[in-house]
Amino acid sequence: MILADKIIRFRKKNGWSQEELAEKMEVSRQAVSKWEAAQTTPDLGKILQLSNLFGVTTDYLLKDELEDEEFIDSVDETIIRKITLAEANEYLKQRKDASVKIAIATFLCIICAIPLFLLIAISELTPFPIADNTAIGIGVISIFPIVAIAVYMFIRVGFKNAPYQFLDKEPFGTEYGVTGLVRDRQNTYHSTYVKYNYIGACGCILAPIPLLCGTFSENGLLTMLMLCITMLIVGISVMFFIVAGVRWSSMQRLLKEGDFSNKRKGKNKITEAIGAAYWLITTAIYLGWSFLTNDWHITWVTWLIAGILFGVVDIICNLVIDKQDEK
């Protein structure tokens, strides 16, 4: 009961309600209520946070006597950086804008090979005589400016996000009102988040239909056009995923939920490194196969296969990491 009494004493001394203390401690009001009713005890991390918040030693909090307070020399406010309402608003606005730019840049990367495919198909038509090598050369060259625009957008987004990188690298807290603000934004956006994911998933499922229709035709140009339509549908579907995902993750990051909870952070770093290596290898295989065989109309399946296998790789990685955590 002693710890519970001390929590109540300091909460009232500071004029905080249970909701306000819960906000500062980043827990639910029910958790604070259980602490004060001695139904549960805060873990060591929360004891340290209470010590810093109340300005007393951890020994005082953990002693089984209600004696005079043992104040620490000074409360180090820099131990945990606090996110203000203004910073939270600015961060959410920045990530909302970034979600659109990232989606467009990714879309450009997906469709960058469309001019190449169309030129290859046109080179086979009699009314538009273009040498195969010329068509391939122009098509390959056209990829570079498209990718350059995408890379420029990625870099710009990265620079604008630089001031908020501490959210992934340092412990942080939130000032009063921030969690409530973000939670309201999250609840408001939830239906849009679900809708965008449905659209993205349906688009990816339906995307192969034009390509399958094109394969039944002996017209090379039509087949290439169907392939390009498939790529456009995939690109648009991925844009919906990215816009929804970036905005939702920004809210989860501030709330320390989902992939941004303390438990998931270590796993995310490992899976991100594996994912980066996986897609670099996939890109190398795609380009190597394409340039060596010149079968650009076939080698695109590399991305389809890689996309399917990546889900399997991700599941295996998470299982292995979970096994290691249990040991």
Rank of each mutant, 00 (worst) to 15 (best):
E26M: 10
S250E: 05
E69S: 00
R183I: 07
E65H: 06
Y91P: 06
E20L: 10
R185Y: 14
L225P: 06
A201S: 15
Y189S: 01
F240N: 03
K63R: 14
T174L: 02
K96N: 05
S99A: 15
L92C: 10
I80T: 02
L116I: 02
F71N: 01
P210L: 10
L254N: 02
N219L: 05
G307I: 13
F71V: 08
V312Q: 10
K269P: 02
T302S: 13
V147A: 03
V301W: 12
P210M: 00
D43Y: 14
A88V: 04
V147D: 00
G55D: 09
Y196K: 04
G15E: 08
G177L: 06
V75P: 05
Q252V: 08
D168F: 13
D184W: 08
E124S: 00
F107T: 06
F54L: 04
D59M: 01
D168N: 11
T134A: 15
A98F: 02
I102W: 06
H190V: 03
I102D: 03
Q49R: 11
C228A: 14
W303T: 07
V238W: 03
K82A: 15
A37T: 15
F240K: 01
A273F: 15
P127F: 07
M1Q: 01
F260I: 08
I315Y: 13
Q30H: 12
W248D: 08
R185W: 09
C202I: 15
I7M: 02
F172E: 01
G139T: 04
Q39P: 03
T293N: 04
Y198D: 01
V32T: 03
W300M: 10
I122W: 03
D68H: 01
G173S: 13
L232M: 05
N14V: 02
Y91S: 04
P42K: 04
V151E: 07
C112E: 04
A22F: 09
A113F: 12
E77A: 12
I2G: 08
H190K: 11
V147Y: 04
L53A: 08
C109M: 13
K263E: 14
K93P: 03
I236D: 00
A38I: 09
I79V: 12
A4Q: 04
V301Q: 10
Q49H: 15
S261P: 01
N219M: 09
Y91E: 04
G258C: 07
K93S: 10
K169A: 15
A201D: 03
